[in-house]
């Protein structure tokens, strides 16, 4: 009897869609075997909590990318929103209002990005870098470069440190934001139009879509995600500083890029971003458990970004990275 061979035609799309996810599973198995305590429940929950900020920021970045725009300001906007929230809480403002202010700062700077890109026609790469510089300056202005620390209301910190049904609040936030973004993109007219605009802006315009407004919405949502991540970061760490989210820039971008190599190859997508964030969190955690020096993580991040973009643009996915 002839051996049954899997047709290459079937393997290729499978590899393109799920190859990176399989690699992530293989990495998980490797750390489970090689790193002691990796599989401990506390460690896995720790990874999930650690990546929640990255995932939320990454989802915001993904929304901008799906609309074919870049948002390189989210980390600085996140820091500014965090210090705004922190300063307001410490000045005795109701925590609820401070939270709204933090998210509002994110939305406001996202809107600013959108207006600069669509009205002033500044490419988003440049516009968001410039807005990042403005946010960074304002964050130092608000804090005088001093971290906001001290006693925080329990009602506020529980946003980041609490638990619901024995699951950390941060994980709930991450799951909720992911599901909301996924539902919006796949099941609603607004999300569908965002996808259309990113897929072919001219076709979307000729179909009567208000593409400028849609791009503004995408960048505003990215800012809003940065604002939410800022609140959760401040609540979970009980501190806020002008540079606190700086490290998340590369990490979140790497998560999104890694996510672009799976599920919808060559395109930013929410499940991919989530798996990308978890893979990066797992990699960092596993490396620490194996005793690797701290700088190895940065080297890995850089390699992940280059590798992911290369895979996205490769013949495997036939989808050029085009932003």
């Amino acid at each position: 009897m002839k051996p049954v061979l899997v047709k290459p035609l079937l393997v290729k799309p499978l590899l393109a869609r799920y190859g990176t996810a399989f690699a992530a599973v293989a990495l998980f198995v490797f750390f489970a075997i090689a790193a002691r305590n990796f599989l401990a429940l506390g460690n896995l929950v720790g990874i999930a909590k650690h990546i929640s900020h990255v995932a939320i920021l990454g989802i915001g970045f993904s929304l901008a990318l799906i609309a074919a725009e870049l948002d390189l300001s989210f980390a600085n906007v996140c820091s500014l929103a965090a210090v705004t929230t922190g300063v307001l809480v410490h000045r005795g403002i109701q925590p609820g209002l401070a939270v709204l202010a933090g998210i509002g700062v994110g939305l406001g700077f996202g809107l600013l990005n959108g207006l600069v890109v669509t009205l002033l026609k500044v490419p988003s790469l440049i516009a968001t870098l410039a807005v990042a510089a403005i946010a960074n300056g304002l964050a130092f202005m608000v804090t005088d470069g001093v971290s906001v620390v001290g006693r925080w209301p329990t009602g506020f910190t529980s946003l980041g440190r609490g638990e619901v049904f024995a699951v950390p609040a941060l994980v709930w936030w991450m799951v909720t934001v992911s599901l909301a973004a996924l539902f919006w993109l796949k099941q609603t007219r607004g999300g569908f139009r965002l996808v259309c605009t990113g897929e072919n802006v001219e076709a979307a315009r000729l179909a009567g879509l208000p593409v400028k407004r849609i791009k503004v919405v995408a960048l505003t949502l990215s800012g809003g995600a940065a604002g939410l991540a800022a609140v959760l970061l401040t609540a979970s760490l009980s501190s806020a500083s002008a540079t606190m989210a700086g490290d998340f820039l590369l990490t979140a971008i790497a998560a999104v890029m890694l996510g672009m190599t799976m599920f919808e190859p060559g395109h930013a997508n929410i499940p991919g971003t989530l798996v990308g964030a978890f893979t990066i969190g797992m990699l960092g955690n596993g490396l620490v458990l194996l005793g690797a020096p701290y700088y190895v993580q940065d080297i890995c991040l850089g390699c992940i970004i280059i590798g992911s973009v290369a895979v996205s643009a490769s013949a495997l996915t036939r989808a050029a990275f085009d932003v």
Binding site: F192, V195, C196, A207
Partner: peptide, 23 residues
């Protein structure tokens, strides 16, 4: 208008392209 370059979004489905803007 039917444009010469068709103005389609290649990755989107047939139904999504037809109802783009008139969902």
């Amino acid at each position: 208008t039917l444009y010469q370059d068709l103005a389609l979004a290649p990755r989107l489905s047939i139904a999504q392209n037809i109802f783009m803007g008139a969902e």
